[in-house]
Design a protein around this nucleic acid. Structure first.
Lengths: 195, 195
DNA sequence: GTCTATATGCGGATAGAC
DNA sequence: GTCTATCCGCATATAGAC
């Protein structure tokens, strides 16, 4: 037993998550990670086939954390308010853990299958949307909401909000969408092509 | 004159743009670029201080192309319809030239100053929004529109639209937002905190 | 002034010894 | 299971040929 066990999947991911969140994705290299763990770079490959799989594991962790935050934030609220608080929780997560959010989003498509926790998030949003009286397909509404949220997060990260606060912009987006949803209910057919 | 001029900023950017759009950003290396131009890797550094500046030049080109497309699409139309056609043109650009769009967006913040053409795009959108009767600040509305567009583009790129067509989702988003804008005009104060 | 040759150092990844 | 040694590709810097 010349080479006793020093590593585990968990300890590797722990240090990797620290590095990701404190120094960003570009600073997360197998070599730096191994060095932090006092181990030869190569030892990591016994636990992950490659860097891609390690990052995917971090992404899955991010998805689980986000799902928890969304569930907690919207628990026990009426559907429309639940969607509002869910949206705020989403924005909070993305802003407070930007690198983790970025990795989570980027990795959704890298595999052909979305990671399990990502699907759970989408199912949860659809569940909330389904509880609303909507003139549109709940999946369309959910997608529109998600697109707005993700775009806002990205614009904020890129400092493209023209000096505006992301929370405030989110409120405006939600106001517009909610008013649009309410307006759609008052008509048999929402105006699809009319400008 | 043993070393006649083989390169120019323009020819480099031309080949770089080809590579970017046909093989993606990750395939765009200084070495591959130089090889394509039949030149030693180092020769490129006579024209660009480094890869970052080369990519920034590509991003600026992308911004100019997008600005042209937005102007052409919305020319001569009434404000509300102009915003709709602008949104469609934005989506078309991002979908037909995904790598160029990606580079353009990523590079907006890399310099402290946004590239000139990016500012021009934002100014153009604000101009259109200003022409509308709005209950909200036009900058808020413009930002909300942009966030929705960019988010939609990203979700589409990541194959996260749950099988839905991006154009269709865009129509739903615009319907909701337009209805929300109209509803806001009918009230002195739009409901900001009410769920 | 323009390019080539060469070298540094970083990154992911592999082979085989212990 | 981890080690040392090694390979390849990358951006980039220096020196020098022409």
């Amino acid at each position: 037993m010349s080479y006793p066990r020093k590593l585990s999947r968990e300890t590797i991911l722990e240090v990797a998550l620290d590095t990701l969140e404190s120094e960003g994705l570009q600073a997360l290299s197998m070599r730096a990670l191994a060095s932090g763990l006092q181990v030869a770079p190569n030892a990591l490959y016994r636990y992950f086939p490659g860097k891609a799989e390690l990052v995917a594991a971090l992404a899955e962790e991010g998805s689980r954390i986000l799902l928890d935050a969304l569930r907690t934030a919207s628990a026990g609220q009426p559907p429309l308010l639940a969607l509002r608080t869910l949206a705020r929780a989403y924005l909070d997560f993305a802003r407070s853990r930007p690198a983790l959010y970025q990795v989570k989003m980027a990795e959704v498509r890298s595999g052909e299958q979305a990671p399990p926790s990502h699907d759970a998030i989408w199912a949860f949003v659809l569940e909330l949307a389904d509880a609303l009286p909507l003139a549109h397909d709940p999946r369309d509404v959910g997608t529109a909401l998600w697109a707005g949220l993700h775009g806002l997060v990205e614009l904020d990260r890129l400092n493209l909000l023209d000096g505006r606060d992301a929370q405030h912009t989110l409120d405006v987006m939600l106001d517009l969408t909610v008013a649009g949803l309410a307006a759609g209910l008052n008509q048999a057919k929402p105006p699809t092509a009319a400008a």
